[in-house]
């Protein structure tokens, strides 16, 4: 199955399992959003607060998820890092959907040569691994704009999905009848964007959010992403890499938070068996 169908796949049958999965995913993302919004209330300590007397405490009554080498409370740090990761991923997702989907749907309506050129450029970009493209874009811009760079790196993926879906819609009989009765291309573009995004917004957002969160965490892990003191989950995991075995809790809880975020986003986008009916 192509990746594009999993972004925009209208009118297919959805099983009960998928409904439950999607509800769990959306519910989980909602819960994470609440945690992110209330991170300063939920976290026991401010972001980056060090307590030298409480260094490297394992999970217990003093620190629920333990503390790191500088005495930072891992639970508080994980909540703050989750807020940074979630916000950055939301920005990347918004950029990827807005630019990628709009360009993908619009490219079908462009004059033949221009549309083909856009499609070729997007195809080339699509062949470059998204992670590598994100790193290149961060390198070409600034680490301050890493969320935007990641969003742009995901754009070709969403663009291709949008383009494929828009192409099949443009060949549909209802589009042919609409053109035959003089409905302008812009109206058809608006129609496609509105209905496709309305029908697939959860799926598209979920998939883009999962991709964004993973790539953002990865580039932060490699040191190209979040800039301290605003640490995200990838940076937390990276900072704990010297003591994975001895102080396992320093990396485990941020990693679990990342897994939960990506899992919820993927469950919300349950459409992997998507075959148009």
């Amino acid at each position: 199955m192509s990746g594009s169908l999993s972004y925009f796949g209208a009118g297919r049958h959805v099983s009960n399992l998928e409904v439950v999965s999607r509800a769990a995913g959306v519910g989980g993302l909602g819960l994470l959003a609440v945690i992110v919004a209330l991170n300063n209330v939920i976290a026991r300590a401010p972001a980056g607060a060090t307590y030298i007397a409480k260094r490297l405490l394992p999970p217990g009554s003093d620190a629920v998820m333990g503390s790191d080498a500088l005495g930072r409370d891992i639970m508080s740090e994980t909540v703050h890092a989750l807020a940074v990761s979630f916000s950055s991923a939301a920005v990347s997702t918004a950029i990827a959907i807005f630019i990628g989907a709009l360009a993908g749907f619009a490219a079908v309506r462009l004059p033949l040569r221009m549309g083909a050129a856009v499609r070729v450029i997007s195809g080339i970009l699509r062949m470059i691994p998204t992670l590598f493209l994100a790193v290149v874009l961060v390198a070409l811009s600034s680490r301050e704009f890493f969320a935007i760079s990641v969003g742009l790196a995901i754009c070709p993926e969403v663009f291709n999905a949008g383009f494929d879906r828009a192409s099949s819609l443009a060949r549909s009989r209802h589009a042919m009848y609409a053109r035959a009765s003089g409905i302008p291309g812009l109206t058809l573009l608006r129609r496609d964007l509105v209905y496709e995004l309305r029908m697939n917004i959860v799926n598209v957002t979920g998939r883009a959010l999962a991709s964004s969160a993973t790539i953002l965490a990865t580039i932060s892990f490699f040191g190209f992403g979040a800039i301290p003191p605003h640490r995200d989950l990838g940076l937390l995991i990276a900072e704990a890499q010297t003591s994975y075995l001895s102080n396992w809790w320093c990396a485990l809880f941020p990693a679990l938070a990342l897994v939960v975020l990506v899992l919820c986003a993927r469950l919300a986008a349950t459409d992997d068996s998507g075959q148009p009916s």
């Binding site: 209208a10 009118g11 549909s172 009989r173 209802h174 589009a175 009848y177 609409a178 053109r179 035959a180 009765s181 003089g182 302008p184 291309g185 129609r191 209905y195 496709e196 029908m199």
Partner: peptide, 22 residues
């Protein structure tokens, strides 16, 4: 030509003539 076609309507036996999403 597209502007001229505004004055044309279709009524067909084709059930796919209307956009099913609309």
């Amino acid at each position: 030509m597209a502007r001229l076609r505004r004055r044309v309507s279709f009524i067909t036996g084709d059930d796919d003539a209307l956009d099913p999403r609309m």
